[in-house]
Simulated assay, not measured.
Amino acid sequence: GKSYLDSLPQPPKDGSPKDNAAWWNGLTPEQQTAHLSLNAAQVGALDGLPSTVRDEANRVVLAEKRAEFQLRLDSIPPAPKKYIGLGRAMRVNPEWREWDKRYADEIKTLEKNLKGMNAIQARFDSTGKEGLPEAYLLGFDTKGGGRAIVANGNPDTADHTAVFVPGTYTDITQTEKYIHHMSEMWKETHALVPGQNVSTVTWIGYDAPQSIVPEAMKKHYANDAAPDLNRFMAGLEYVQGGDDKSHTTLIGHSYGSTVLGAASNQGDLRTDDIIAVGSPGMLVEHAKDLDVEEGHVWSQSAGTLDDQVPLGGKFAGLGGDTEWWEEVLPFGTVWGSNVPSDEDFGANIMQNDAESHTDYWRDDSSSIENQAKVVAGQYGKVQRG
């Protein structure tokens, strides 16, 4: 199989969405089938390929990894008793200590990834329930914190597309929660535009900070994620047929909004609207500095008592560019930079009824309803805050 695969035309190295599409379209049906069977992980990761193709490839990878991880987990022997002896003579069992040293980390890794994979499969199985459309797996990997890019509805044919970028603590274990967020977003948006196609995408496509201090106070996580997000958005635009084919909205929650800012700073961010939710800062001082037309940046924040992340972002200096010497100063020294919920930032402030930093996507909330109105392009219906 490997020798046959190696004989076929290979995907372009670091290809653009256009390059990737040209390679795929240049293959014969037999060659395409071979790549899907023998090279599924690489095919599923190529921006610019049709979503149906990426979904087919990534489902192969998901099935293989899910089986592999479950078999590995099932093969681990049960833990011996942790303690032996009685009363004051009770002590930690040396056999348990050896078992824990050998297997504990592996069990944690396997269970973490299986939780995310099972959540993806559960979304596949829920297609048709409560009106949910077909799901498309546009990206999947178990490396690092894990990757999962899941779309409700085919983005290639969508009139309205929303891409959700989550923030701190994001990894593959959060897949179920974030898929639910975007499933509800699909329902809310679809209800506003009957007869039109809607796609809402959960983009767990980067290694997010795993702590508030110090990781979420650093910029490099956002700067490292930005090229991947830009490539993904460029790929979506390409398969849709151009920037005028779908109204696109990027939604960044918490540090996810910082990723949006970094992507905007690094290149041509392919979106019509940006929604920053509970944002600690977008690495720019004003909305006009972001890569969308004036009036198309939106913000939601529950207020300092319920959501302290925007205040924390001001302390960390995530609200704008800082000098090199400011980067090495203690946290809290760089104070006063704008975040999207500040009036001076210049975003459209949207009403919300969130009661905490993680409450902006509560079912039937005004927070998610207002976001959906932006996703649907119905700006006049948005309740202002």
Rank of each mutant, 00 (worst) to 15 (best):
P29K: 10
S126N: 08
K108W: 03
R102M: 10
Q70W: 11
L137W: 02
E56Y: 13
G85I: 08
K81A: 14
A104T: 09
N152M: 13
I76Y: 12
A67D: 06
G153E: 00
E106I: 03
N154T: 08
V92A: 04
K108G: 09
D55P: 04
T109E: 12
R102H: 11
D47G: 04
E106R: 02
T28W: 05
G145W: 01
R91A: 05
V150R: 04
R54Q: 12
G153D: 00
N58V: 07
Q32M: 09
A104D: 07
N39E: 00
E95Q: 11
R66G: 00
T127M: 04
Q70G: 07
E98I: 01
D47M: 13
Q121C: 05
P29Y: 10
Q70T: 14
P78I: 14
E68N: 04
I149R: 04
T142L: 14
L46E: 07
N93I: 05
E95P: 03
P155E: 06
K65T: 09
P155S: 02
D100M: 03
L114K: 01
N58M: 15
G128K: 01
N152S: 06
K101G: 15
K115R: 08
D141I: 04
D55Y: 00
D125M: 11
D100Y: 12
T28C: 04
L49K: 04
L27C: 07
A119N: 01
A122L: 12
G44F: 15
I107H: 04
F140S: 05
H35A: 05
P77D: 13
M90T: 14
P155Y: 03
T142W: 11
A104M: 04
N58E: 12
G131T: 15
E68A: 06
Q31F: 01
N58R: 10
E30M: 09
R66A: 03
A104S: 12
T52P: 01
N118I: 10
I76T: 02
W23T: 10
N25R: 02
A45T: 03
L49N: 05
W99H: 09
F69I: 06
K143S: 12
R91L: 03
L110M: 02
G144M: 00
G145N: 08
P29H: 11
D100F: 06
K101I: 06
G145L: 09
A135T: 13
K112C: 08
V92H: 09
R88L: 15
P78E: 15
P78Y: 13
W99D: 08
T33G: 14
L73A: 01
L86P: 01
S37L: 12
Q31N: 06
T52C: 05
N152A: 06
E130D: 15
L138C: 09
G146S: 11
K112P: 08
A57R: 06
A148N: 06
E130W: 11
G131C: 12
L27V: 07
T142D: 12
